[in-house]
Structure formats: structure tokens, C-alpha cells
Design a binder for these strands. Sequence first.
DNA 1: GGGGATATCTTGACAGTGTCTAGATAAGCG
DNA 2: CGCTTATCTAGACACTGTCAAGATATCCCC
Lengths: 215, 215
Amino acid sequence: MPLDKTTKRKQSYHHGDLERSLLDAAEIELEENGIERFSLRAVAKRASVSHGAPAHHFGNADGLLTALASRGYGKFIAMQDKRESLASDNPKAKLAASGLGYIDFAIEHPALFRLMFASERTDKANSSLAKAANAAFEKLTEHIEAIQGIDPHTDQFAMADVLACWGIAHGLADLTISQRLGRATFLAGMSDQDRDAFFSDIILRGVSPHAGRHA
Amino acid sequence: MPLDKTTKRKQSYHHGDLERSLLDAAEIELEENGIERFSLRAVAKRASVSHGAPAHHFGNADGLLTALASRGYGKFIAMQDKRESLASDNPKAKLAASGLGYIDFAIEHPALFRLMFASERTDKANSSLAKAANAAFEKLTEHIEAIQGIDPHTDQFAMADVLACWGIAHGLADLTISQRLGRATFLAGMSDQDRDAFFSDIILRGVSPHAGRHA
DNA sequence: GGGGATATCTTGACAGTGTCTAGATAAGCG
DNA sequence: CGCTTATCTAGACACTGTCAAGATATCCCC
């Protein structure tokens, strides 16, 4: 019985691009339920496929989550790039914009953010994931190098700036999605523009004023 | 058959202080397996009690985790206090010490830290938990007030300092237990004392130099 | 084009999970 | 002592992730 092949070829036994479909479904499930209530069978059901299907592509549930985290870094960097492209053309503005993109991503994809940065279910030895995470880190070091004029990999003081800025952006992002910053009531009443300026100021505190200092 | 009543009264049907025993067992299980692999039945087994026993004391698994998080804030604040008591007697040193205690706690109890700050399984409406979390926050605002001479609750610039310092300490703590800071290779080779000084410097960057500025 | 090898997906089974209910046991109190 | 209440056990249920066996489609070489 050849069912409506015209509408969708969904009736096909082979899915075509199930790997992508599963990742899409998993991302939705993740954002809806959070990591702690993530269900592989629910992902399969959402993708209209049997509960055993994901195993062939990802091995197990953690494999799927690892792939999802890896893909997440693409969006993560893209959001930072977008912020940077809108920023004025000086190193500090670019750095602040990058940090705002960091926070943007956390707010828009809180569960994915947690998966990427705080989950034990991802395989950190996975080369694809490690490469993606490293790219995000290198991006930050380049910003600091542009400001301080020296490669943080070779200079301890510049690396301190890297850790400071990273810590600030990450901390603000994590606390924001945990809804911990609501106590600072004035934040809720701020316009987006004011909020960005407020966060930018804080992010730039990570940069040491002792520019170019090194051993 | 009255079994050895002398050694432990464990043979008693009623446990005596099962609530505390369950919390202790849960804390061990949590640190061993992480939140994402936490099992209520494993907790019951560790406490040598039936799988249904926890329900009577905590309602459900999330109730147990909420109580555990609430108790965690006690240790959390205690660790900060210990650091502060060892610090020299000036407001900035106290603030930095408090931040180091923040990081200490995360390193010693990573899973509990994640439960307290990044889990969706705790009931944030729980009054006991909210009160504990608030106490930790107020502690920080007092440090900033001691430095800037104005209550952050009434001054936006002082509150910015609060969020900055909190973000830094939290970000460094979270990234540390995620083992993300290993790339900054020199950190591993540092003595505890040097590492503390390094983190202290970063934490204090959260304090704005424009002291006492206010609208 | 045909046909065997291979990739892909389904199905059923299994142990483990959290929660609910009913019942057993202990403790408290009149 | 006996009734009430608190506490804990035991069994059932639906759901979970993973595994093994089988069904089905696609690929590729003859």
C-alpha cells in the first residue's frame, strides 16, 4: 500500500537524515524538561521513530547528549560573533560584546548551556566536542591579546585576564539562568540597552589596568 | 528473637533518626554519582532501609534533594566564615576570603554545589531553602557595604559590585569543578598559597574603584 | 537489472527507577 | 491495657536505558 508519497516521504522505512532529526528532537526535549528529566525514549517518540533507533547513531543516551553539546558550541560562538559584529571597533568593546553573547546564549538555551558546561553526561574525551569547546576558549584569548598586546598562553598576567573575564561572563550567565539575580530588583526594570551596558561594565572589570605587564 | 541490642539498636523497627541518616546517605550518593545519576533507592539501600521509607520524611526524591540543598548552605557559609577568620582585618581581605571559601566549597562538594545552584530538582519556594540561600547573599552584601560604605540594597553602583564579585566567585568555582581551567596550565603548578593570591586578585576586580559613588 | 552484503530501524526483553497503596509494626497516650 | 498515630515494609505500576534478534531498505559489484 503506497501511502501518500507526495506529502512527505515519512513513510519510508529509512529516515534519510535521522541523525539530525534526533538532535533536533533532543534539543527541544532538553529545553522543555531540562537535563535532569531528559528521556531518550521521549526523543525517539518526538522524532516518530522507535525507542531503539537512536542507539545505532549515537551508541547510547550520553552519546546523543555529547553530539548535542558539540553542535551547541556552533550556536554559542555564532551568538558571540553576532554581538561582536554590532559592537564598535575597539578591542574592549569587542570583548564586552563577546561576553554579552555568552550571556545571550545561556538565556536563550539554558538547558543546552548547562549540558555544555556543567553536565557529567557528555564525553569530554570526544574529539569533536573538545575541539568545539577549545575554539570558544581561543576566541577569548584572542580578545585579551588584542587588548593587552601579548598572547595569554605565554603570559601569566594576560591569562589572569582571560580567567577573570571568563569567570565573570560565566558566573553572570549561570546565575541569571538560575534566576538568582532577581534579588537585584533594579535589573528587572532595566531596558535591554541599559542591562547590556550594566553587564558590559562588569565584564570589563576582568581586564587588568596594568596593560601589557609581563615577566 | 532479640538480636544484639548492645552493639546498635539497628534492629529496631523504628530507626530513631532516619531523617538525618537519609540525608547523610543522600549526600554520599550525590557526591559519588552526581545529580544526574542520583538514585533514591540507592540512598535507601545505603541507609539500610526499604525503598519506600524516604517518602514518609521527604515526600518524594526532590523533597529529599531540597532538604539536602538547604543543609548544604550551612556548610557553605561555614566554609566562608572559616576563610574570613583567617584573613587579615580589612574589608577587602574579608571579601576575598569569602570568595575563596565559596570556591573551596565547590571543590570539596562539587555535586552538592551543583544541586544548590544549578539544579531544577530543588523546590525554590521551600522557605527553609530560600532562607538559607538568602543568608548567603546577605553575607556578600555586607562585605560590599563594609567596603563602599553604602547598603547595596539602596545603591545601584554598590549592587553592581555585589553582582560582579558574586559572578566572579561563582564563575571561577563552576569552571573549576568542570575542570575547564586546566588549560591555564600554570594553575596546576601553583602552591595553594599562590593560587589563593591569584584568585583573590581576580575576585577583588569585582569591586569598583569609584568608592562610595551613588546617585 | 539481480542479488548478496551492509546499513538502518523495529520489536521484545530485562533490570533498574520513582511513586503509590495497603498492610505490618512500633511508639505514644488515654 | 487498648486505641490512635507515626513510622516503615512490601508489592505493584508505569516508565527508563540498554541489549539482542529480527525485519527492511539501500548500496554496490557482478
